[in-house]
Amino acid sequence: MSQAEAARRTSPLWTLGLFRSELLTTFRRWRTLALLGVLAAVPVLVGVAVEIETGDGPAAGGGGGAGPAFISQITNNGLFLVFTALAATLPFFLPMAVGVVAGDALAGEANAGTLRYLLVAPAGRTRLLLTKFATVIAFCLAATLVVAVSALAVGALLFPLGDLTTISGTRISFAEGLARALLIALVVAASLIGVAALGLFVSTLTDSGIAAMATTVGLLITVQILGQIPQLDALHPYFFSHYWLSFADLMREPVYWEDLTRNLGLQALYAAVFGSAAWARFTGKDITA
């Protein structure tokens, strides 16, 4: 009642302030920084491994097509390290990091006993939830960009850069390649929205941050395993991870949009379903801590 009325009277600037303070709290945590550090290390590992493997001279194709996508092209163009690093981190590292942050978003506050103080502020629960969701999505973007930028830096240091060949065999300039890399990073970040919404919903269910994180990451692993079972073919299109690797379609010429749009639609659906479920749970919940 009074809380919500107060919220309505507050200016948008106030919400922005809440968002800013949430961002600061999240990104100042050692845990968050450690997660980002691990993510930044993955491209370094991949880059150094490829460099050592092919150190004797320019690689001649090779690899036979094993390993993450685009890995055979890294030695010829460092920009491909961005795509390889994203392909390597997307199945597990990135969503795990997002799961940890999303699971902790509300349950962590409840666990630490700070949630009710947040609610004392005239923001309202819906607004707080939206802010938390926005923060988690901001983390998705930050995490993806950390991987991409780190990969670009390592790629530029260890390998030559220049015009690149799309997977369709046509050539594009380095500038266009960079633009596509940025677009791919955005698509990858958007691919994580489903996990983010799921994690936020789980976070409203419990007062234990650890339990919420474990549940979210556990769900992630479960879905990844189920996604490998061919007998469950009929269910696969509904898994949030099903179209994840479609970001590589942006490297086709012309771009193949079908799976990309399906991926974005699926993520939006997860955001709507679990976002509203989180709202239903959070706004009707007794806050005791």
Binding site: G61, G62, G65, G169, A248, Y256
Partner: peptide, 27 residues
């Protein structure tokens, strides 16, 4: 072009050249 997961196999005929390009193995 045969579209594969994160890769593509293209067979290109341009004049008297025929190119096959497998982007997964870069061959």
């Amino acid at each position: 072009s045969l579209l594969e997961d994160a890769a593509e196999y293209s067979l290109i005929h341009d004049g008297k050249d025929v190119w096959g390009y497998d982007s997964r193995s870069n061959e």
